[in-house]
Structure formats: C-alpha cells, structure tokens
Design a binder for these strands. Structure first.
Length: 655
DNA sequence: GCACGCCGGATTTTT
DNA sequence: TCCGGCGTGC
C-alpha cells in the first residue's frame, strides 16, 4: 500500500503527531488520507471503530468510503465517515433526551425560508428580505456567535430559533451547535467520544467554519490524534461561513503538531501548473507552496477572444466537435463558469451543434415547481406532521383551499395534520368544509393503498402515479411540466417507501448524467473534479472576478486557481468583447487574472476565420458601414463614427 | 381564493 | 431578459 506513495505522502502516513497535510491540487490528497487510515488499521494502531473522518459533501463521503473499502473490505463500515452534519445528527440522536429534543426533524432548506418569512411578518418588518435574514442568521449560527448580530437581527435569530423549537425541527446549523452544546455541558459525554475516537480525520480543512472548528477542538485531546487535510489556496466558501484562518493557524492551535506540504502534481501538464502557480502566487494570505507537474507537454494554454458572446459560444462548440472527432471521443470535457446565469448561451450553442451536454450541480430539476409539488406528497406521506409538505401539497393543484384556510389549520394545537384539520373543520364555511372533507377521504384512501402493498418493491412509484393522477396535479400541468413529472416518477423506482425517498433527497443530490457528456457547471461545483479539457468561458472582469467580490479579490483568485487546476491535458480561456448582459448589450474587458498568469505558457488566439475586413455593408438599423473585423457569427462594423459588433446575418453586402 | 400584472433584482450554495 | 414576489380586483 505504501510503495506507490511519494516521500512526502509517505511521511504524512507515518507521522504520529497531530498533522496538517497541505495538499495542493492534484497532489493525491485523498490517496494519502486513505493510506494513512488503512495503514493505521493494518498496524493495529487504531481499530476501525476508533476512527472518525469528516468530509465536505455526501459525495466525498461516498468516495472516501469506497476507496477505503477497496483496501480493507467491509470493516470500512465500522469507521465513522460522514459530513459534520451527518455525524452530528447521530450524536444528537443518541443524546436527544439530554438536549431536550423530541425526535430530530430536519428542516429542508426551502422551509427555512418559509419560517423566516413568517418571523419577519410577525415582527412586521418589511425592509429585510427573508433570504437575507436567513443568510445572516445562518452565518451567526455557524459561528455560534449571536453577539455579532445587531439588535434587530439578534431578535430575528431568537424568533427564528423559537419557531423551529415549536415545530420540533432542527436546521443544519443546529446539528453542529447542539453537538457542541452537548459536549460543553456534559464533560462525561465529551470524554466518552474523546476516548472512543483515537484518530480524527478532517478533509477540506480550509473550508470549515467556526462552529465546526470548535467541534473538532472539543473532540481533540492529548490522548487522540488529529489529521487535517486541505489547501488554503482552494478555500472558496467564505460566503457561507468558511474561515481559512483555521488552516493557516493549525500548528498554533493544536499542540504537538506538524505540517507536511504535498507539491507534486499528478493531474495537469506543466504548462497548466505553471500558469496556476503564477496566478495564485499573487495572493498574500496563504501558505507558500509551489506545485511541480510530473507531466511535460508542449501544449500551451489557449486564450480565445470572441467579438460577441454568441461567437464565443459557437467557437467553443467547434473546438469541442474537433476534439470529439479525433480519437478522443472518450475525453472528459467541461465548461466551468463563475456564475450559473452565464450558462444559458452556451447551452443553446451546444444544443445547436448537436453536442450532448449535461448541467451538473445546482439541483435545478428538483427545484422546479411541479417537482416540488409532487415531492410534497411524498413528504407528507412520510411524515404526517410535516406542515410545510401539507401546505404545499394541498395547494397543488388548486383545490379551492388557499393560504387563509391553511393558516387557520396551522393554528390548531394538534401536531398530526389530519387531526388539525378535523379540529377546525366546523369553523369553515360549508364550501371549504366540503373540500377539506373530500381531501381527507382521498388522503385516507391513498394511505391505505400504500399500507396494503407491503411486499411491492415499486409501491412508492405506484402510489405516486395514482396520487399524481387522482389529485388532478398531473392534469393541471402544461405538457413540458408533465414530462418532468414523468421523469421524476421514473426516479422513484428504486425506493420502497416514502421514508427512504425523503431521506434520500435530504442527504443526496439526484444526479444522473452520461459521463461522456460535455459538463457545464460552476467552478464551485467543480471543486475536487478533473477533466481532460477545460473551457473557462466569460473570463471577463466583473464576471470573473465578480464585480460584487472585488473587495475579496483573493478568494476570487483562489476560485480562478481552482478552475485552472481542474484541467488535465488542455485549458481554454475565452472571453468576448461584447455580450448581452441582464437584457442589454455590454462591452466587456478581459479578466485581470489573465495578466497575472504566466505569459510563457499562454497563447493568444483569435476566432477570425475568413476576413471580410474592408467590405462595405448595409444594416437595417444602423445603415451603411465598413467591416473592421469579422468572425463566424458577428462582425465589428464602423458605422460613420461608431463601431458596433453586429450579427453577420443582419448585414447585406454592397459595392 | 385565485388570476393577473407590475416591479425590482439578477454570485458562488452544501449540509 | 427573465423570474419570482406581492398587491389588486373579481
């Protein structure tokens, strides 16, 4: 196992102190941590159940789990691997009584916003947006620090927490803070966990927040070992509470500790790495390191300039088609964006060019209104106390029961919603009363079908097909929305009951895409991934770096660094001189980051193919002009005293 | 209760 | 330009 490690990786595996592994992009970070865990187990230094390992996402959990499994087999299941939240959930559940928590109902993200909306309307505050309030409160909860809030927000935070408590619900941040509360107030329980876990591993240490730091600090003691892995140059989540000062201060924070830096990159060519090094070296707040690529290549990093965004998209498609037409059908190709709103244009172009693509990340499918509606039925089947699910479901499709009726129902004290309805039934007008009774009867019938087919492995799908039709939801939708619901029904096949499905969507993102598809995603979503060919479109100042982050330029630079280091074979950076932005034409400037790259590894290209420069043309709107530059789609034309970039199809040639 | 139209805003988002 | 929230009027 150790034979295919390089010297620094091996040193990290052999180190018996508290350890920080600073692992640059593509330096075998996961390999090292997995080797360390397996090595410890094989030497008998720790038993599998004496290890706790935290990851950043559920996907990363699966990845670590499967890599350890391939080394040590089923013993992997004895190791506590998971995200902070999932591990905390287990701990909180184990000590629910002590924490005064009845059941541990996790609240879904969109319901948090709903709660916040209610809080704000209760205190009659119309100036603060719910999303903003939620963000602020969330940050404070993640820091475990309400003192940083001003008076108004502190009140909002307390009211929000009160309402969650009333609902018997926990949000994600609560999972962490409840665990901390437990450990702080009950030394015996903390000691139990400190003794239990001899080795604590933390992945993505550069992106932990203050609460998570406290969680780790409490668990770490003289009798156990902590091993954190991360890369301060890839800290890109400060907007949601990540605090990279923890990784910078590691050796100060943890006694008897060491730092090992991995700098040998096995992913990208030397040109890509030298470019990335150049860029990131402009940051001041970092741990100095210099990646060295093990792959020599003559291929430079290409920078393409388009006249217009449309041309940029069109030309990227041409390059992709060219790559695919060579023997490289199996190559992985990705377009990485600073903002997801920029993807549209490129989606369209890929569609036109007949290139298969998929959008990765943001749960767009699950975010669609009709899917949320359908899911709300499953949620209500799974939890008869889930008021949010109920209130969404009862109003989709429209049944003549609206928000006023729902609000009245919510006031009934009973926690079971069917009881709630029955309790207030008589206070409604006969019209509403009839509609509600009708619904109750229908719901009881659906529930009984569900409990009848105990042995059917596809019963969730079956019952949802019945519900979607009988409720009238399906009928109420337009045809493309119907198709979405059809697709969604297919995804239910692998679930037996509503509970397992609800559990699944809470912890996993549904993603099914072809691995040969061209991938479109944000740079954030691409963290941890790698592709043979990477395109960075819309590499323009104001977009990347984003104008709203100019004051946090180092994080933008890290984000660009993450983007650059995703590429294995070849990197294309593209931008356009003008594009439609928020509904209007804008002139664009290339990203300042291009100037910060290694000019020796860069190659400036142009999309111009056949030049029409000098030709006299006529344009419907702007009149007569002379072409200055031309591309495949657009041309820069001088009309009198002004130059404009226009669609080539709109030009008529004249003599 | 609900449809419709106006207005404002438009970075990144997992757990 | 496009989407979602909110207010109005039936």
């Amino acid at each position: 196992m150790l034979s295919n490690l390089n010297p620094s990786q091996r040193e990290a595996v052999d180190c018996r102190k508290n350890l920080l592994i600073v692992a640059g992009a593509g330096t075998g970070k996961t390999k090292t941590i997995v080797s360390k865990i397996c090595h410890y187990i094989s030497l008998g230094i720790v038993m599998p159940d004496e290890i706790i390992a935290t990851t950043f996402t559920n996907k990363a959990t699966q990845e670590m789990h499967s890599r350890i499994k391939s080394e040590i087999g089923d013993d992997v299941d004895l190791i506590s691997i998971g995200t902070f939240h999932r591990l905390s959930l287990k701990i909180v559940q184990n000590h629910a009584k002590l924490l005064n928590i009845e059941g541990c109902n996790l609240i879904a993200y969109e319901d948090q916003a709903q709660v916040m909306r209610k809080v704000l309307s209760n205190i009659k505050n119309k100036d603060i947006k719910p999303s903003h309030a939620l963000e602020t409160v969330q940050r404070a909860k993640e820091k475990n620090d309400y003192a940083s809030l001003n008076h108004t927000y502190a009140n909002i935070a307390y009211a929000y927490n009160d309402m969650l408590r009333e609902m018997n619900a926990l949000d994600f941040a609560d999972l962490i803070s409840k665990t901390i509360e437990l450990w702080r107030n009950h030394k015996d329980i903390l000691d139990h966990y400190r003794k239990k876990y001899k080795l604590i591993c933390v992945d993505e240490y550069q992106d932990i927040n203050d609460a998570q730091y406290e969680w780790i600090s409490l668990l770490s003691c003289d009798d156990n070992q902590i091993c954190c892995v991360g890369d301060p140059d890839q800290s890109i989540y400060s907007f949601r509470g990540s605090n990279m000062s923890h990784i910078l201060n590691f050796t100060r924070d943890f006694k008897n500790s060491e730092k090992i830096v991995l700098e040998e990159n096995y992913r990208s060519t030397d040109k890509i790495i030298s470019n990335s090094n150049h860029l990131i070296s402009k940051n001041k707040n970092r741990i100095e390191k210099f990646l060295v690529s093990t792959l020599k290549s003559d291929e430079l990093v290409d920078i393409f300039v388009g006249m217009h965004g449309k041309e940029e998209a069109f030309e990227i498609c041409r390059i992709i088609a060219k790559i695919k037409s060579k023997e490289e059908v199996k190559s992985s190709i990705a377009l990485l964006f600073r903002t997801s709103t920029n993807m549209h244009l490129f989606e369209e172009a890929l569609l036109n060019a007949n290139i298969k693509y998929s959008i990765v990340g943001s749960v767009q499918f699950m975010d669609r209104a009709e899917i949320k509606d359908a899911v709300s039925y499953v949620r209500f089947l799974s939890n008869p106390n889930d008021f949010f699910a109920f209130s969404r479901m009862i109003q989709a499709p429209k049944r003549g029961i609206g928000s006023a009726t729902v609000a009245k129902i919510s006031e009934n004290a009973s926690s079971n919603i069917e009881d709630k309805i029955r309790g207030v039934l008589d206070s409604f007008t006969s019209r509403t009363k009839n509609k509600l009774s009708e619904f109750l009867a229908q719901w009881e019938r659906w529930r009984s079908i569900l409990s009848k087919d105990l042995s059917d492995s596809k019963k969730l799908r079956k019952i949802m097909e019945i519900i979607v039709n009988e409720s009238g939801l399906y009928e109420s939708l337009e045809s493309d929305r119907k198709e979405n619901v059809d697709k969604w029904l297919e995804t239910l096949d692998s679930f037996e009951d509503p509970e397992s499905y609800v559990n699944h969507i809470l912890w996993n993102n549904l993603k099914a895409d072809d691995e040969h598809d061209v991938k479109l995603m944000t740079v954030h979503a691409a963290k941890g991934l790698e592709f043979d060919y990477v395109f960075l479109p819309v590499f323009e100042d104001g977009i990347f770096p984003h104008s709203r982050s100019f004051e946090n330029i180092e994080e933008e630079r890290r984000l660009a660094y993450v983007a650059l280091t995703r590429a294995k074979k070849k990197l294309f950076i593209t931008y356009a001189q003008s594009r439609v932005f928020q509904g209007r034409y804008m002139n664009a400037q290339p990203s300042r980051f291009i100037r910060e790259m290694d000019s020796k590894s860069l190659q400036f290209q142009s999309f111009k193919h056949k030049t029409l420069a000098g030709k006299k043309v006529y344009h419907e709107e702007f009149g007569y002009g002379t072409i200055e530059e031309s591309g495949m789609q657009c041309a820069k034309v001088c009309f009198g005293s002004v130059s404009k970039v226009v669609d080539i199809k709109k030009l008529v040639e004249c003599d």
